[in-house]
Simulated assay, not measured.
Amino acid sequence: MSNGYADLGNGKVYYEIEGKGETLVLIHAGFVDSGMWDGQWQALTRYWRVLRFDMRGFGKSDPSTGPVSRRHDLYRLLKELGIGNAHLLGCSIGGETAIDFTLEHPEMVLSLTVVSGIPGGFEMRGEPPSEILEMLQALEEGDLDRVNDLQVRLWVDGPFRQPEDVSQSVRQHAAEMNRTAVRNGTWAIADASPLNPPNPPAAVRLAEINIPVLIIAGSLDNPELLRAADFLADGINGAKKVIMPDSAHVPNMEKPEEFNKIVLDFLNRA
């Protein structure tokens, strides 16, 4: 395995690469870091040259000092590492990033896998989860432990389970990763008002994607995330959709063996 830091000009990003063959890029969710792919690493690097990295503000990468463009950071990283094209697999904000990157640089993307992702411009319906409002209040009060706990409840547990219903090791791992992002204030600084969002947004451009696409969602995630999965599958010609049972926003962490099989089957066909 090779690892190091890539200087993107506005901060250094930590990355790891292992394996041979075509490149597969793993893009993590917005409350964890590249460690969310620990359960996939050995299975995927057996067949692919896999790159995973910590986005700015997460994990071992530099903190964000202002709004960022995640798709532009991904482009700079791939150019810095000399990667001309790759398969993309992103979760949550990582999935949104992968979609935006695919639309902006279609010649660089061999296939696209979106996990628990929402395309830019997709309008959520109904009231936001109660945890969102509680998190904003906890942020104002500087109660970072409370923010971290609410993030885990929102994304790992989901709206239909209590903490005791979920693997404690998964919850603990997510909380450890999220602690860095909470301490860095990453969401408020970097992602609440992202830099140069695509215009028009991805939600109205999905028909332009003409590569193999896999959409994955957890059955116990917020229903609006499942509606987003339907929206993506309906909007992208030939896209395959898989709903993983008994999991929420990070199904790869909860059910790694099942997730790995789904992804490997798709990539082998792609």
Rank of each mutant, 00 (worst) to 15 (best):
E254H: 01
Q42T: 14
T45Q: 12
A229L: 02
V68A: 12
P256E: 14
G84K: 15
L8I: 12
V115Q: 06
R161M: 07
N252F: 13
W155E: 03
G95L: 04
A202L: 07
Q40K: 08
G66V: 13
I83E: 00
D33Q: 05
R125Y: 02
I262P: 11
H72A: 15
H173W: 01
L136W: 14
F266T: 00
I93F: 06
G11Q: 09
E131A: 13
F122D: 10
M55D: 02
N268L: 11
V250E: 00
L51T: 08
T102G: 05
D149Q: 14
A181H: 09
Q162W: 01
V166L: 02
I93A: 10
G84T: 14
Q40G: 08
M135I: 14
P119K: 08
S167H: 10
S116C: 06
M253W: 01
R183A: 12
W155C: 02
V25H: 00
V166H: 13
W187C: 11
N237G: 10
K261S: 10
D145W: 12
L77Q: 04
A228D: 13
S130R: 15
F231Y: 15
A202S: 15
S69L: 03
I118M: 04
S2M: 10
R56K: 13
L195V: 09
N222V: 09
W41D: 11
F101Y: 14
E257T: 08
R205A: 08
R269A: 12
S2E: 14
T45E: 07
A228T: 14
Q162E: 09
M177I: 03
N10F: 01
L81H: 02
L214N: 04
E127N: 14
G11W: 11
F122S: 09
L136V: 13
Y5R: 04
H173I: 01
I27H: 00
A175N: 11
D157R: 01
L144Q: 04
E96S: 14
Q168L: 09
I132T: 05
V115H: 09
S169N: 12
N184M: 04
N184P: 04
S247R: 09
E141P: 04
